[in-house]
Structures are given as C-alpha cells and as structure tokens.
Design a protein around this nucleic acid. Sequence first.
DNA 1: TTGTAAGCGTTATCAG
DNA 2: CTGATAACGCTTACAA
Lengths: 358, 358
Amino acid sequence: MPHFPSEMATPDPVERVPVTEPSDGIPPIGQKVRIEEVAALAGVSPITVSRALRNPAIVSEARRKRIEEVVTKTGYASNPHASALKSGRSNLVAAFLSNITSQQYTAAAEGCAKVLEEAGYHLVIARTSYSYARETTLIRALMTMRPAAAFITGVMELEENRIFLRNLKVPIVESWAYASDPIDMLVGFSNTDGVQLVVDHLAEKGYRKVGFVGRSSGRGTIRLNAFLKGAEAAGIEIKATLTVANVQGIADGRQALRSMLAASPDMDAVFCANDLLGIGAMLEARAMGLNIPGDLAIVGFGDSEVAAEVPPGMTTVVVDAHAIGEKAGEMLLARLTGQKIERPSCLFPVRLEVRGSS
Amino acid sequence: MPHFPSEMATPDPVERVPVTEPSDGIPPIGQKVRIEEVAALAGVSPITVSRALRNPAIVSEARRKRIEEVVTKTGYASNPHASALKSGRSNLVAAFLSNITSQQYTAAAEGCAKVLEEAGYHLVIARTSYSYARETTLIRALMTMRPAAAFITGVMELEENRIFLRNLKVPIVESWAYASDPIDMLVGFSNTDGVQLVVDHLAEKGYRKVGFVGRSSGRGTIRLNAFLKGAEAAGIEIKATLTVANVQGIADGRQALRSMLAASPDMDAVFCANDLLGIGAMLEARAMGLNIPGDLAIVGFGDSEVAAEVPPGMTTVVVDAHAIGEKAGEMLLARLTGQKIERPSCLFPVRLEVRGSS
DNA sequence: TTGTAAGCGTTATCAG
DNA sequence: CTGATAACGCTTACAA
C-alpha cells in the first residue's frame, strides 16, 4: 500500500544540475512567442516565417538567415495545434502496440521514434490488444488527432479498422508478419519461413517427437499452423500442442512445459512460439533435472536479450525488432517528405540462431 | 539486410476479421462531423454542444439528452487541435521515460496510460536520457503541444528544465525516488531505504566482503552512495565497486562480475543496483562454476520478471512499477478534475524479496 | 519569391 | 441555463 511521507522514509539525495553551461545553442526556455512577433522582428510577413521553417528552400537566403536568427533568439516554437488545425495534419505519429510491455514491440517503437523525432515528429503510443471494441474506440480517438502517420506492431485484423485507416490516406506501416495485402506499407518477415527454419533444424538434428507452445490468436495462429504443416511434411510427430490465451510470460512457459511433459513424457523437443515462453520452458526443464538438449531440446522465436544468456543458450529465430522499427520510421518519413515508395513492402530475412539448447 | 518481397519469402496467412457484429454502440467510423452540424441537428447552438460534452452538469437535461443522441448517431468526435488551440490545453499527457525499453518504465507507462485513457487522455511517450541538451530540446518540443499533464519516470535533474516545467502550471508527477522538493507531485519510494534493506540483509547473513555494480549517473549515484554509507556503518568491507555508464543489460552484468572477481576473488556477495545487471551476474557466476549463494551471494534491485525465475531465484528489492504508474495517473487525473491534492507526495514502501541467491 | 486575405473548429467571454 | 461574438495561431489559396 502506498502511503504519504512520514518520518519512516528516508529522502533520497537527488542530484540537481544547475544551469551552468553558457546558452550555446539551446534557446531560452519558457517563453511564448508567436509567429507574428518573429515576423515583425525579422521584417517579413508571418507566412514567410512559416515557409522558412517548414520549407527553407523556397525562401531567399537573406531572409531565411534573418528569420533563423530571430527564431533562435526568441526561442520561437510553432504551435502544433494551430498548425494541425489549419493544415489538417499534425506532427504526431500514432503507434499501435498490442502490448506496451513487450521488449520486442518497445524496441521497435524506440527505433521508429528515434527516426521520426529527428524529423520533428512524435510518437503517440497506444495499446490495442484488449478487445476489438476497444481497439476500434482507440483508433477512432487517436485518429481525431490527425496524426501524420501510423505504425502498427502487427497486422490490423479487424476489417472495419483496416478500411477506416486506409481511408485516412496517411502513411501506415504494418509489421511483424508478411501479409500479402497491407493497408498501406509493411515492414515484416515471414513467420512461416521462420517456423520452417525451426522445423528443418529439428528434423536435421533428429528430433522426431516434438511439442508446441504458443499463443492462440493472431500471429500465434500463423506460427502454430506453419509448425503443424511443416512438421507433418518433415515426418515429425507432434506429441502435444498447448496454446495460452493472451499471456506470454516466463511463468507461462514453465507451466506449459510441465503440463506437456506430464501428458507426453517422451517428447524430445519443444518449440516455443516466443522467447519468453521458451526461456520459461528452459528454466523449468532444468529445474526438473532434465538435460538440455540431451533429454529435451528447446527452440524459441524472437531473439530476446535473455535467449543468449540463459544457459546453455536458447536456439531461436532472430527478429531484429529495433531494425524493423527504424525501417518503418524511414518508410513513413519517406512518404511524409513526398518521396515515391516504389515497393510498399520491406521484408527482413529470417535466420535461426543455433545455440546450446538444441 | 532487409529486402523487398520476392519469391524467396513465404507470405503469412494473416487472419482477417470481417465486420460481423451489429453496430452495437460503436458509432459508424470514418466520418468528419463538426460541432456545428451536431448543434443544428439538436436544435441548439454549438457552444451548448461543447458544454454538454465537457461539462454535462451545466446543460439542461432535455437538451443534453438530445445532444447525446445526435452525437451517437453522427459519430461526432471533437477536433482536439481546435480545442487545444482555443483552450490552451490538450488531451495529451507527456511521459518522459529515460529508457523506453526498460521493463520497469514501460510497465509504469502502461499503468499510467490505462488510468488516463479511461478519462480520455493519451500518453505521448518520449525518451529523454541521452544528453541534457537533448532532454531540453525534447521537453520544449513536447510542451508546445500544451499537454494537460506530464509524467516523469525519474526525477528531473536539470534545474533549467525543472523551472520550465513548473512554470507551465500543469500537473506533473515525478517518480522512482523520494526527492524532497518535487517540481509538483511525486510518486516514489526511498532508494536509500531499499538499499539499506539490502545492507541489513547482507550483514545479517554474515557477508562481509561485498561488491557493487551500478550505473554511474542519476539514481545510480543514489544507490551507490547509500550502499557505501550503509555498508560502512554495518562493518561491511567494500571490496570493489564498478559503475557502468549508461547501459544496464544482462551482458553488462556478466562482464562486471567477471571484472570484479578478477580484481577481488575473495568477495562473498555482490549487490547489483538493478535486476538486469543482477541476472547477468548470476548467470556469469554459475557459468564460472560458482555456487550461489555458497560461494557468492547476489542481490538485485527492481524485481523484474526474470528475477524470480533465474535459479536459484534472485533476492531483490521489490518495486511495483505498474502500481507506481497507476498511482501517478490517478494523481494527475485528480488534479485535472480540479480535486485538491492534500499531499503532493505519495510513497510506496520498499520491501526485500529474499530468494535463493542470498 | 513574397504578401494578403481568409478560415481551420473549437471555446472564452460576456451578455441575455 | 443559453447564445452571439470573437478570437486561439497558424497555413491554404490566391494575387502580386
């Protein structure tokens, strides 16, 4: 239970940094300047200031310089709401993450935000994956902000929302899967191929009685189906499949492994459709005294930070989430700056990182 | 290297959900209605619609009902930019995270976003911790959006920015430390007390030759200093301290442990100022064949998901990041709805979760 | 290349 | 409790 300060808690000596640096570049802070004043000081009209700021090339060298000086001196920053109101487009970019605490998605958001921020855009992050109704409400709410673009970590499933987003005519990047008909653009990888790498690897190593743990919706289904199909073709017997509803934590992985082994003690390998499940499975297997990979091989999907670190190292399909986010940011930016995108889809190749667990 | 689609990649069969549900509540999507039209349809003036939406109590029952009907029917959503332009305040809340990929901070952001979204606010997340110059630029940029409030995962250090934020007169919650003079409000815990719990625990268990791994800036300093001071008082000898600059990953923890053990092989315990470092240290210690806690005890700070799972379980100071975020959201909301906050600081008690590693 | 005029959609203000 | 009026600060459209 939180409480209010009392003599019971010791204050932390927080270090404060006084303003020491000479104001080298950083404009004075805390003012409220309008474009009109900048214009007056620079001896031009407001619209010229506006142009100098958003499209310097079309303003004469001399005036541009003068304007820039005044902007720096006054610390002018344009009011994004006024700008958005008039132009119908803001400097916000909407990011829809199905899970805001997922390392993978936040890594992607981080990459995307970094690229966009350099161009003056800001990411508004929203969490979607609770229910379709909530997702719909959320998209509507965010889109009233007239974001300049949108980034979706995943593929929008609800047709109604796809249509809505498409109609907005803003650049949109979906991601994380190789969907054939993106709303607009796509930065993804083939889950199907990633899973196939796993199947091939397991087959080659001689594993024949395998289990599957994964989520039961969205991409979870893709990975499950790809696995079932691939395993059949490779002559691998599926001893057990276990899908967890919406969670993907380490604890779920532990639990899943325990259940599956109870039902099918003779499994020789388990494929976990994401790394956290895989790590849970590895920890549980070791706790049960199993030898990895001797008694049981374990393979994950996603290459989270821990995968390489959990002994003996978890074999996993590598997905560079940060790079996906960066690429998404670049594609959005290209569109926003009027460049033609010749290919609306960018695919990252999938790769299996083989480690000690298989 | 990303590439563009070719025959090499297999498309994923992405499941699409058609619009089947009857439009129960969810208004039709994709329209562009203005307040004027709603007013006309309801037979009132635009300002009455505005009032009915933002302060229903001051509009007569009859008109309010009529307006609500029209709003539902038309799917009207007010333009937040026009609103923000006129009123000088938006429905955005700025969140400054020093690290957007930290589980702890995103968990807090998640909690905060959840609370705020129920009241119609949206979190704009920005990453601050690169340099003071960047932080300053970022704050300026975000604040031009006239956010209704701000949430900071940490305590703002730069005095210049503190003053700027305070002058904006919007509700602000700092967090994650017990600072004595917050900009506005605070939801935190005493790092000093948390570290003291660790010191007491180590002393009680008989560890006398300990090492410290942590970050060298911000809260890192607080934890380091508290540890040095506490250890001295408890008669514990500090064999080694190692601070890493800005990273806090598992790999850093491994590296740090190796360096420290090389320099001081007789350490009997290590305190890691965050869990990821601690987990790295544990994995490395085990890889080196050390027995935990027999040869070496390890204690972390933060209670990340993995702490409990890495065998034999890592002792750590528990910080409920999600709850901190929720509480922050509630305090901001209270202020935004005009409630008086009697106490500007809310502290969460600290607790040591003792597990197998010590 | 620059400027003028007008208005984006809402809400503050003040009068009824 | 309701309405008329006038902005909020910027950028589009058009003219020079």
